[in-house]
Each structure stands twice: as structure tokens, then as C-alpha cells.
């Protein structure tokens, strides 16, 4: 265990833990767009910058990305000092120039008092902030269907060859983690379309509700050792089946007791 001071409050944390997870546990609101607990910290969005110092630093301070900074004993952290807020405003100002139409960015920027970017807005901007969360989550899940393509100004998130990605299973993880909701998909009947690729949705055997795609189910059952027929039922019907089974066990044991 290490002991550090955050905004004047002494806090205990595990050794090697990242600063951002400590502040989140303590209920301190630090904005972060590229962070997700399921993947390694990446430090792309730079919104979680905080001010750090130590007693022996003679008044010197440093500014670090909280998501990538392991906590140390005796660390003194300011999460919302005027300099930190100024740094965040700059980042938000740049993000606003990049994605002027993103409601998520606009709202976050407004919270920090930035309503209009000082930079030139990108013409026909999409809302992608290139945080790479989608590609990292996809990689973490083991599908590795999408990646960043190109570099510098031309960098985008795209499937290989910018065609329908052969490794995509239509799990929607990329769309769901996207902090600015850029990744579009469509569910129509038993068909799902994402990244220009179509998938068949499995209908629950009992209630007919659409669950996950056939490709995703196949991938899960082969890679994670889940029986194939598990995906024939939706979550609700699984629960119902389980409760009926449990109920029958209870009544059976009552009968046995009497």
C-alpha cells in the first residue's frame, strides 16, 4: 500500500495502480475519453492530465496523464488546479476543432468553459478523436478486425484495405466503447450491418428476440469453450430456464424431506 494526497485528502492506494483508477475510486471526476477498464491505459486523449508534486521537490510540479501514472508514496496531486484546467481547456479546444459536431465533445468543452474553438475547424469533420479505443478493444477481444490506417492528417480508423473486415464478427464492441459515437451500425430484422459487412442475428429459440450474430457466437464457442447451443437462447430465457430448474430442485428436495 502507498499513501498519497489528492486535492488535500490523504488516500491509500495499491502499489503500481494508475493514478486515474485511484481518483475514480475516490469519486473525483477527471475527464478521460480514451480510457476503458477492459484495456491497457493508452494516454491518447490527454484529458486526464493532473498536477503532481512531492514534498522534496522544492515546489516544482509536473503535469502527467493520470491514466498512465503509477501512484507513489508521498505523491501530492491536484486534479483541478487552475493550470490543470487550463491544460484541459487547450486539449478540449483542439478536440473541438477536430470534431465541431460531436455533442459529447461540445458538452465536455462547455463544462470547461470552451464553447467555440480558437482554431480552425476541420471541414467535413467526422466525430472521431482517434483515441484508438475501438481498435484496442477489438484487439483485446482477439478479433483484431480494425486498426488505425495511415498517419498524421490522414490517419483514420478503418478495416484492412478499407473493405469489409474479414475478421469482424459484428460484436459491436467498437461501437459501444466509442466515446463520441462515431461507429455506426444497423440492425434490421435478423440482419446486422457494421463496417459494411452483414451478419445474421440469432433469434432466441424461446421468445424470438434477436441476440448476437452467428459469427460472434461461433467465435465465442470455439475460443472461449462455451457450448454452441448456449447462444440459442437469449439472456432472459436463460434466466427463466435456470429459475425453473432451480424451482424444480427446491420442490423435489421438499418432497424428499416430507
Amino acid at each position: 500500500m502507498v499513501s498519497l494526497t489528492i486535492n488535500g485528502r490523504v488516500v491509500q492506494a495499491n502499489k503500481g495502480e494508475m493514478l486515474l483508477s485511484v481518483t475514480r475510486r475516490e469519486g473525483i471526476d477527471i475527464p478521460a475519453l480514451c480510457h476503458h477498464d477492459a484495456v491497457e491505459p493508452f494516454g491518447a486523449c490527454r484529458l486526464c492530465m493532473v498536477e503532481i508534486t512531492k514534498a522534496e521537490w522544492d515546489g516544482w510540479t509536473n503535469y502527467v496523464a493520470a491514466c498512465l501514472y503509477p501512484v507513489e508514496d508521498g505523491l501530492i496531486v491536484q486534479t483541478h488546479s487552475s493550470k490543470v484546467n487550463e491544460l484541459r481547456r487547450t486539449v478540449l479546444d483542439l478536440l473541438l476543432a477536430r470534431c465541431p459536431n460531436s455533442p459529447e465533445i461540445r458538452q465536455l468543452a462547455a463544462e470547461y468553459g470552451v464553447t467555440q474553438t480558437a482554431y480552425e475547424e476541420i471541414p467535413d469533420a467526422d466525430n472521431c478523436i482517434l483515441c484508438g479505443l475501438c481498435t484496442r478493444v477489438c484487439e483485446r477481444l482477439g478479433f483484431k478486425a480494425i486498426s488505425t490506417v495511415g498517419r498524421g492528417h490522414d490517419k483514420v480508423v478503418a478495416p484492412p484495405l478499407k473493405e469489409a473486415p474479414p475478421d469482424c464478427v459484428g460484436c459491436l464492441s467498437c461501437a459501444q466503447v466509442c466515446p463520441t459515437n462515431v461507429i455506426q451500425y444497423e440492425d434490421e430484422g435478423n440482419k446486422r450491418t457494421i463496417w459494411n459487412k452483414s451478419f445474421e442475428l440469432i433469434a432466441c429459440k424461446e421468445c424470438g428476440k434477436q441476440t448476437i450474430t452467428r459469427d460472434f457466437a461461433e467465435a465465442l464457442s470455439s475460443q472461449r469453450n462455451i457450448p454452441e447451443d448456449y447462444f440459442e437462447l437469449c439472456d432472459e430465457c436463460h434466466r427463466r430456464e435456470l429459475s425453473v430448474k432451480m424451482g424444480s430442485i427446491v420442490s423435489w428436495s421438499r418432497e424428499a424431506a416430507s
Binding site: I146, V149, L161
Partner: peptide, 12 residues
């Protein structure tokens, strides 16, 4: 190597 990685590197 995943095809996405190959494409990423070859466009970088």
C-alpha cells in the same frame, strides 16, 4: 499477423 496490423503498418 492480423491483416488489420499489416494494413496499419503498410499505410503508416
Amino acid at each position: 499477423v492480423p491483416l488489420s496490423k499489416v494494413f496499419s503498418v503498410s499505410t503508416f
